[in-house]
Design a protein around this nucleic acid. Sequence first.
DNA 1: GCTCGTATTAGTACCAGATATTATAAACAA
DNA 2: TTGTTTATAATATCTGGTACTAATACGAGC
Lengths: 189, 189
Amino acid sequence: MSQSQSPKKIRQKKLKEYLQENPFLTDDDLAEIFGVSVQTIRLDRLALGIPEVRKRIKSVAEEAFGGVRSLDEGELLGKLLDIELGQYAVSVMDITKEMVSEHGHVRGHVLYAQASSLAIAVIDSEIVLTGSARVRFKRPVLLGEKVIAKATVKTRKGASYLVSVHSKVDNDLVFKGHFIMVAPEKKRQ
Amino acid sequence: MSQSQSPKKIRQKKLKEYLQENPFLTDDDLAEIFGVSVQTIRLDRLALGIPEVRKRIKSVAEEAFGGVRSLDEGELLGKLLDIELGQYAVSVMDITKEMVSEHGHVRGHVLYAQASSLAIAVIDSEIVLTGSARVRFKRPVLLGEKVIAKATVKTRKGASYLVSVHSKVDNDLVFKGHFIMVAPEKKRQ
DNA sequence: GCTCGTATTAGTACCAGATATTATAAACAA
DNA sequence: TTGTTTATAATATCTGGTACTAATACGAGC
């Protein structure tokens, strides 16, 4: 063992990171990846307090399942809080470390993605595409903050919709965008 | 059995709805809820083609994980082909299945992310944020296509840059955007 | 009544991916 | 050499199933 980092500690640290990235791996998979026995992996998980693969998967699923479950939206970024199809939709997104740059600022495309996917969800049509968008970032968003976006359908001309999205952190406007959405196919009802 | 609805059919229909609402229930739970034996539930699931609870949970988890996954790709989305700091940058991105919706169209925020991250990369400064953007999607992009984006710095006013991005598939314009980028800190050199 | 057919329930063997525990081997330091 | 940590192995047990076979219940038709 010895000074700075025993191979055990290193492996356990990597294991933790690995499972954060991909919680779907079984102990068997992990044993192969790390070149150790299954029992060693189990001991490591025990030491680190990491639950078994099925519980990990369940946690991921439950987290995602929290919001309003109206449409099939693996598409949506963030958690849908409220929706009135064709009128408005609200979602919340927690800023995790994968979303920020090395300087701690949320990358703009993350806020854009939340807004854009919400604009898609609010339109009552099977297929919805973005035609164009104008977005403005009002202030940087930081790690750990909670962004609440609200999309409102403003006008509709045929298959074309104007959707406005406002995103706030603690009631503080951080992002504003106008999306022209197009629903090329027939409407749902 | 008889006329309109046999009790079996009714139960199976309800079972299906029930699991859509709550995929986390075991056969044991379901047997209790419906007041039938576990075996009956299993037969029903078999008839309806509904997988076991662990597979249902896994599906929910994977769907949710795919969403965050697609923007998790590090700082730059796509592969940088060429760059002249402060002038232009070119990147290429292969459209993989995580990037497309169930209808096979690339989600707009993916193209936005490629463009936006390229606009950040082209500016010669430590910290770069997007101030605002105007984007236009010219035609849908499909699974398997290869998107080449080119970002060009048009003008600069102090800490503010205007970057124009054009993305093409087979020399066919699919996306066009103007980004106002801000580099609030001191420049790199 | 009896018989046929569907629906339901029961029982058994097996599987994946674990937990929990005990035993043994290897690696190395004092 | 002796002791300690680390790794591996082996075994019993658990959950929530699949897959298959067998037994039973229930109603319809005659």
